[in-house]
Computed example of a mutant assay.
Amino acid sequence: MAAGLGAASLLGLGLYLAVPAASADQSPSPGTTTSAKPKDGRHGEQRPWRHRARWAARGVHGEATVRGKDNAFRVRTWQRGEITGRSGAGLTVRSADGVAWTWTTDGKTRVRENGKKSNAAALAAGDRVMVIGERAGTTRTAKIVVVPKKK
Rank of each mutant, 00 (worst) to 15 (best):
residue 28 P to Q: 13
residue 100 A to S: 12
residue 115 G to E: 03
residue 77 T to M: 02
residue 71 N to W: 10
residue 45 E to M: 08
residue 41 G to W: 07
residue 6 G to S: 09
residue 108 K to V: 13
residue 146 V to I: 15
residue 60 V to G: 04
residue 124 A to N: 10
residue 75 V to Y: 04
residue 144 I to R: 09
residue 124 A to Y: 10
residue 3 A to Q: 10
residue 134 E to Q: 15
residue 151 K to E: 06
residue 93 V to N: 00
residue 55 W to G: 04
residue 116 K to E: 14
residue 98 G to Q: 11
residue 58 R to E: 08
residue 81 G to Q: 04
residue 59 G to V: 07
residue 115 G to Q: 08
residue 33 T to H: 01
residue 76 R to G: 02
residue 94 R to G: 04
residue 126 G to C: 12
residue 111 V to S: 05
residue 131 V to F: 13
residue 109 T to G: 01
residue 148 P to L: 13
residue 30 P to M: 05
residue 3 A to I: 13
residue 70 D to N: 12
residue 136 A to I: 15
residue 16 Y to D: 03
residue 54 R to E: 08
residue 106 D to W: 07
residue 93 V to A: 01
residue 88 G to V: 01
residue 4 G to A: 12
residue 114 N to I: 03
residue 23 S to K: 02
residue 10 L to F: 08
residue 68 G to C: 05
residue 71 N to P: 00
residue 23 S to E: 07
residue 134 E to N: 15
residue 144 I to M: 10
residue 6 G to K: 02
residue 116 K to Q: 14
residue 18 A to H: 04
residue 138 T to I: 14
residue 28 P to H: 11
residue 103 W to R: 02
residue 17 L to P: 00
residue 34 T to I: 05
residue 150 K to T: 15
residue 66 V to L: 13
residue 79 Q to P: 01
residue 138 T to G: 13
residue 77 T to L: 02
residue 121 A to V: 14
residue 149 K to N: 09
residue 84 T to D: 01
residue 95 S to F: 06
residue 69 K to S: 08
residue 33 T to V: 06
residue 51 H to E: 10
residue 59 G to R: 05
residue 86 R to N: 03
residue 28 P to R: 13
residue 85 G to W: 03
residue 116 K to D: 12
residue 124 A to T: 13
residue 47 R to P: 00
residue 51 H to F: 10
residue 93 V to E: 03
residue 69 K to R: 04
residue 59 G to Y: 07
residue 132 I to K: 07
residue 148 P to H: 14
residue 22 A to I: 02
residue 115 G to N: 08
residue 46 Q to L: 12
residue 135 R to Q: 15
residue 48 P to W: 09
residue 88 G to W: 09
residue 73 F to S: 09
residue 111 V to A: 07
residue 69 K to T: 14
residue 1 M to C: 04
residue 15 L to Q: 10
residue 63 E to T: 13
residue 128 R to K: 14
residue 145 V to A: 15
residue 83 I to S: 00
residue 147 V to Q: 06
residue 131 V to S: 11
residue 20 P to H: 11
residue 138 T to K: 14
residue 12 G to L: 02
residue 148 P to A: 15
residue 2 A to D: 10
residue 101 W to M: 02
residue 69 K to H: 06
residue 84 T to W: 00
residue 97 D to T: 09
residue 34 T to K: 00
residue 4 G to Y: 06
residue 41 G to R: 03
residue 96 A to F: 03
residue 66 V to T: 12
residue 102 T to A: 04
residue 46 Q to T: 14
residue 138 T to W: 14
residue 92 T to K: 01
residue 40 D to C: 03
residue 83 I to F: 00
residue 73 F to W: 05
residue 104 T to K: 04
residue 124 A to I: 10
residue 150 K to W: 11
